Simulated assay, not measured.
Amino acid sequence: MNKKLIDSIALYVEQHIGEFHANRIAKLQAVNLKQLLSRKNPYMFKAKNIVTAGGMVESIASATMSSAEESIFGNWMEGLAMFVAKRVYGGYKSSAEGIDLEFDKEGIHYFISVKSGPSWSNSTSMKKQKEQFRTARRVFNTSRKSVPTMCIEGCCYGNDNKGYTDSDHEKYCGEKFWTLISGEPTLFVDIIEPLGYKAKEKNEEYFIEYGRMINKFTQEFIRDYCNADGDIEWEKIVRLNAAIKSSQTSKKK
């Protein structure tokens, strides 16, 4: 373990982890019940036999926030990776489209697109990423032709490490990625402890806001989507979620 590097990471986390928690709370405060109902699959919730307003609200809110948190924390982890590469190898934010990080290591110039995890892409986004790597390499070679280059799809977690047959780039995940940008083979494990900085305190603040949202949306759900007997009116929810909007209908006429 490189203690100086870990200490610098711990300080970075202390100074910046609040951004992750603040963004979680901001996401909570930005959503409304109609948005939640319109974005999640009502048929699945009906199939799960959800019969209470609280159960319905808790289910859609939990699914929404779980997805949002992964994206928010992924962006935060990308920032940490940039910090590590800058400290160890003088890495810098790339000006090339679709490339996050560049640095020189052992005579090779690296172009890195930093991703949260290995399952970020579909065929269209991967095709675009490959083209961005080719463009960055082509521009670089106009001024530094004698310097070898490598293009890396760097994922902060996972172990889906592989090369690509067209030689455009390689995929480094988890241990392999953190070792590349730090030179430290155990960094992928060492960073887990600093990430818990004030986690209990910050999560308590989050769950206070989360509880407020659940209570507020449950009241709203009962008012707008339950009948006088207290039954969930599934037809209303399905129409909100899946019916053709009137503006779209009028355009077709």
Rank of each mutant, 00 (worst) to 15 (best):
I112V: 15
V31R: 01
P148R: 11
G163H: 00
H16R: 14
R134Y: 01
G54V: 05
Y89V: 02
G91W: 06
G79I: 10
V88T: 11
G74S: 06
N2M: 05
V31D: 08
F177L: 02
K216C: 08
Y206N: 06
S119C: 07
S143H: 03
N141Q: 11
G79L: 10
G74D: 04
E97M: 05
W76V: 14
G117K: 07
E106I: 01
H21I: 01
I17N: 13
S123G: 07
A242K: 10
R39D: 14
F20A: 14
A81W: 02
T218Q: 09
A199Y: 03
R239H: 09
R212F: 04
V31H: 02
Y197D: 09
N203G: 09
F111I: 09
M82G: 10
A243I: 06
E131A: 15
I208L: 08
I50K: 02
Y157M: 10
C155T: 06
T249R: 09
E201M: 11
S71Q: 11
W120F: 09
V147G: 02
D168L: 02
P148A: 10
I222Y: 00
T142S: 13
K253P: 10
Y225L: 11
S95G: 11
T64N: 12
G230S: 01
W234Y: 05
E153G: 01
K27D: 14
E205L: 13
W234E: 07
D104K: 05
T52C: 07
V31Y: 05
I99E: 02
N49W: 00
E97K: 14
Q29P: 05
M82K: 09
D190H: 06
I112T: 10
S246G: 13
G230L: 03
I99T: 02
F83K: 07
S66L: 07
Y164R: 07
L28I: 11
N161W: 01
I222N: 05
Y110G: 12
T179C: 04
N203K: 12
G196I: 04
F111E: 07
Q15D: 15
R87T: 15
A30H: 12
W76I: 13
A47Q: 08
K236N: 15
E201V: 14
